[in-house]
């Protein structure tokens, strides 16, 4: 474990908690893409099946359970409890255009053709594009609430910190996972446009960002 991976995990945890609390406190999921949240729940489900097969550390197990729990709680709040506030008209990204290619790629490019490994690879590829429905929805509505921008900032920051973690691990441990690195680079690049807006609009203090 290194400081970049730890802060990355904490940034990821912060993002997940920020979103969950925002929906819970405001009792509304307006402006939130339910599709992205379903994709994230799928990412955690397919990646953390090893909870059943191997124990890494208390930290590892605890975080995985928290991530899965919060992901499903968020999906529940969006599609059940606060369904009336779900903005389905703007959450129209065709997720099948993500899941099918990602599923196919996971079968073609992986480290090992075993069920657990293919599911892990699927989750890595899916996570890199899972935020697209949310970014698409923001571009359609033309604005995002401040809390949502903080959520996206921490979510983008987490994988950017993981990139540094992988540089660190390659240099000090000789460890690297090309699949995770390539997907992580793609994932972080998708946030670049948002990061620019977050930083520039953040300074001007306007409480809404208007992506191009």
């Amino acid at each position: 474990m290194n400081i970049f991976r730890l802060t990355g995990d904490l940034s990821h945890l912060a993002a997940i908690i920020i979103l969950l609390l925002k929906i819970w406190k405001t009792r509304s999921c307006a402006g939130i893409s339910g599709k992205s949240q379903v994709l994230f729940a799928l990412v955690f489900t397919t990646r953390y099946l090893d909870l059943l097969t191997s124990f890494i550390s208390l930290y590892n197990t605890t975080m995985k359970i928290i991530y899965i729990g919060c992901a499903y709680a968020t999906v529940y709040l969006i599609y059940m409890k606060f369904k009336a506030t779900y903005d389905g008209n703007h959450d129209t990204f065709r997720v099948e255009f993500l899941v099918v290619p990602v599923g196919g790629l996971a079968f073609l490019v992986n480290h090992d053709f075993s069920p657990l490994e293919i599911l892990w690879t699927f989750s890595i590829y899916l996570e890199s594009v899972a935020i697209l429905p949310q970014l698409f929805m923001i571009s359609k509505t033309g604005e995002a609430e401040t809390i949502t921008t903080h959520y996206l900032f921490f979510l983008g920051l987490y994988r950017a910190l993981y990139l540094i973690n992988w540089i660190w691990r390659f240099y000090f441990e000789g460890f690297f996972d090309m699949i995770a690195i390539v997907a992580g680079v793609v994932q972080t690049i998708l946030y670049c446009d948002f990061f620019y807006l977050y930083v520039t609009k953040g300074e001007s203090g306007s409480n809404k960002i208007n992506p191009a």
Binding site: D9, H12, S54, I56, K64, Y67, W120, Y162, A180
Partner: peptide, 10 residues
């Protein structure tokens, strides 16, 4: 068979 290294990252 290569020891199946557990994935220690989240």
């Amino acid at each position: 068979l290569e020891e199946d290294k557990p994935k220690d990252e989240l």
